[in-house]
Design a binder for these strands. Sequence first.
DNA 1: CTATAATCGGAATGAACAACCCGCTTAAGG
DNA 2: CCTTAAGCGGGTTGTTCATTCCGATTATAG
Lengths: 233, 233
Amino acid sequence: MSGQPQRADARRNRERILRAAFDAFAADGHLVPLDDIARRAGVGAGTVYRNFPTKEALFKAVVADRIDRIVDEARALEDADDPADAFYGFLLWVVERAMYNHAICDALAMDVGTFDEDHRDQEFTLALDVLLQRAQAAGAVRSDVDVREVRTLLVGSMLMERLRRSVGPPGRMTSLVCDGLRPVTKGNETSSRNETRCEVCATPLTPARTGRPARFCSSSCRQKAHRRRTKPG
Amino acid sequence: MSGQPQRADARRNRERILRAAFDAFAADGHLVPLDDIARRAGVGAGTVYRNFPTKEALFKAVVADRIDRIVDEARALEDADDPADAFYGFLLWVVERAMYNHAICDALAMDVGTFDEDHRDQEFTLALDVLLQRAQAAGAVRSDVDVREVRTLLVGSMLMERLRRSVGPPGRMTSLVCDGLRPVTKGNETSSRNETRCEVCATPLTPARTGRPARFCSSSCRQKAHRRRTKPG
DNA sequence: CTATAATCGGAATGAACAACCCGCTTAAGG
DNA sequence: CCTTAAGCGGGTTGTTCATTCCGATTATAG
């Protein structure tokens, strides 16, 4: 299909499209009309479609490179001296990139919540997990969070920074979110923190707003506990 | 115009439209097509437009009531015994509501980042501010956050919970965000927390990822500090 | 220079929506 | 009943997009 266009002008156009798409997606996220990209590239919409089967394919092609660089950065930080700096610094760095390139935010947000079958996406999560686990082992990150939660917080931070673009200093929301990831220190163990867990499956629990504190994450866990209590052995 | 429709059937239709709109917006947010709402209400699109000049007006009409209830709740908590519980409980409660009613999330998100000229919106921010300041005075919330930041965190929490609907326990992201709002305890004062401020205007600073820590929030503040140092008096 | 197949551009298509319009229906006062 | 204006519905218009199509253009091999 498009194993590589043969004609010189076609190859040139492909490059121009990629450049224009990068700029446009970075500026306005994945919602920019494809016609705008074509115009910025100085080609017709048809030419874009000869190179990329759908707009989404173009988006992925443009963003893949950036995600790769981010994964590279994470990997490079895997054996940094200070795991805490590596982890928190990485989060901040990614958010900062995303502020100049909304495509990153959109791409990372896209597959949160779905079990990602996308290969590149798994790599990101994997690399982030290494940083997270090292930071947790070093006592710099509370032990009750997992990668998927951190990833969601990362995406959330990017969205919040975007909401506040124009008001307030950039990176502020991310700092606050990061501070929620830091471990408790002595004197603050459980009283104010939200670190209670389900008694059966150890899922972190949300403190109940009123009444007695919850002990299980779901009714099925509550029943399981009840069965254990009544059926001996 | 629509001071109140006169005919009985018209009044009935108006109610059905409001009910349908409420359900639809709650389920899918402000993006549901207006035609869907009309169909669910069992009326034509024209009938919707006789009652509400635009889709946005309908959305606001539907959501206003809910926002009012939320503001009421905040006001009711203003003199609760425990300011910490009141504040954190309120945040959690709002997020929980928003999980069953996406319109709330959309409405609250709408005016973050713009200086809201919307009256109802100001009331929400104001009520939240009271809870925040009481919690801060009680030492339950770090003192370097302002309402607008909290409000953004609130919206961000709602968005993150929505991203994770289906995976993981609801309320989890909000808990983590809340923990980022808790004050530092002894032994943890400044080392790991992101609480450095600009030396000139006291804007909270993002820690620099590499190199020396930042001391100013912008180059204009850096220059101001320099002028102070060089120009005596 | 010519032939010709690869490429191009942008008009055309089709879908999704908000908003408008107007001929038909019906509530309700007499 | 009958009248009549308020109210109705859904077809129509206008817009914004993604995607497709095809006649016109152009690179390039010979």
